[in-house]
Simulated assay, not measured.
Amino acid sequence: MAHQHTRTIVLGSLAALGCETLYGLSYIFTKQATNSASPIALLGWRFLIAFIVMTGLIIAGVIHVNLAGKKLQPLLLVAIFDPVLYFIGETFGISHTTASESGVFLACIPVAALLASALILHKYPSRQQIIGILITLIGVIITVIAAGASASLSIIGYLFLFLAVVTYALYSVYVEKAEAYTGIEITYIMLAAGAIVFVVMALGESLIHGNLQSLLSLPMTNKRFTIAVLYQGISSSVLALFLSNYAIAKIGVNKTASFIGVSTVVSIVAGILLLGEAFSSTQLIGAVVIICGVYTANNTFHLK
């Protein structure tokens, strides 16, 4: 029994680590794609490709989805929180604020997830988890401020970022409550909802600006955009969402939330190695603090 419990924790932790690594690497592809297309166009193509890929895997029998006799309401609630409301909040929040501001706001997600878990699931984090997540939060704030502290004072932007923080926390909680569904079933409904909402938004945006043909031909005419949406659609959507849902099912909201800062470290390293971005000693300190926070939240020792 103890061996099985340890195996569950290890697999759940590896899934959370893998998910945040994929999200951290997506920064590179997002940066390249948004140079030639709007964020909404990227989201539309991203979730459409993800939905098509996962549907193909289901048809081929590689993965299995069986929703017969199961209520869809809990899954739709999860999908509304993430990806729909979360990505609307993140996308428009980032576009109306500075990189440092959005980074600090989104770094609050683990804290919001702890509060949501306590209030809705009545699962209270240990003192060790709270300390670890707060250390991670401090590390992320140090890192994003070191990258360039500036303020937009955009109330609209702050409200959208607040929406992203709250809805991601609620997604984490309601995924844990969706015990009747497999991680693959939850992921598939999330991708379907994302595809419907963001494709409609992308089409609406292109019609307003009179560039529908440009939107439809983007993957055929822009190699960087194509590579970006393939990575975003397959790795950052299908695989990362499955890993996230799996991690929450295995180790719960509180432990999964403690890994969120890892994506910040991965994005910094990827920016240095692949884009040749500058790296300061303060960012290094922030990255070390993040890793210490994740270790503290997930180590087996107990604080008294």
Rank of each mutant, 00 (worst) to 15 (best):
H5Y: 10
S152T: 11
V144F: 13
M1A: 13
A287E: 12
K177R: 15
L22F: 09
I109H: 03
A107M: 10
Q213L: 11
R127I: 13
N299I: 05
G103L: 05
E185I: 09
M201S: 03
K304C: 07
L241W: 12
G204K: 00
S150C: 02
L212S: 04
S237H: 06
K250T: 09
I120N: 11
I130P: 01
S150V: 04
K177P: 05
S100W: 04
K71E: 15
S102H: 03
L241T: 07
N245W: 06
Y181D: 05
S117L: 08
A68Q: 14
L230V: 12
S280L: 03
E179R: 05
Y168Q: 09
I94C: 13
I248R: 12
S172A: 10
V144N: 14
S172T: 09
E185Q: 05
Y246R: 14
G61C: 04
F259P: 03
P83M: 06
I156Q: 15
I248S: 05
I40R: 08
S267E: 00
G132K: 08
H96T: 08
F51K: 02
N66W: 11
F301Q: 07
A112H: 07
V199L: 07
P125D: 11
T30I: 09
E176T: 11
L67A: 08
I272Y: 06
K70E: 00
R7W: 07
L207M: 15
L212Q: 03
S267I: 04
P39Q: 04
Y124T: 08
T296E: 09
L76M: 06
P83N: 05
K304Q: 12
M190N: 14
T136G: 09
W45E: 03
S263V: 01
A116L: 03
G103D: 08
G18A: 00
I268L: 15
T221D: 08
V144Q: 03
G56T: 14
V144G: 01
A118P: 12
S26F: 11
I88T: 02
L17C: 06
S95L: 15
R127C: 12
V144Y: 09
F92D: 04
F81G: 01
A68M: 00
G271S: 07
I133V: 03
Y23T: 03
L215W: 08
V166E: 02
H96N: 10
V144D: 02
Q32A: 13
V165H: 01
G194K: 12
E277I: 09
C108L: 09
G261D: 02
Y231T: 10
F51D: 14
I133D: 06
A178W: 10
A287C: 11
V199K: 11
H209E: 00
R46Y: 15
T221N: 02
H302E: 12
L43S: 13
A107P: 03
S102E: 01
F92W: 12
Y295I: 13
Y86S: 02
L243F: 04
Y27F: 08
Y188V: 05
M201W: 00
D82N: 14
L137Y: 09
I49K: 08
V288L: 02
I260C: 07
H96P: 08
L163K: 12
L275I: 14
E179K: 05
A247P: 04
F81M: 15
S102A: 04
I138D: 05
A257F: 00
T143E: 00
F162D: 14
A116W: 14
F47L: 09
A15L: 00
T34M: 14
A16G: 13
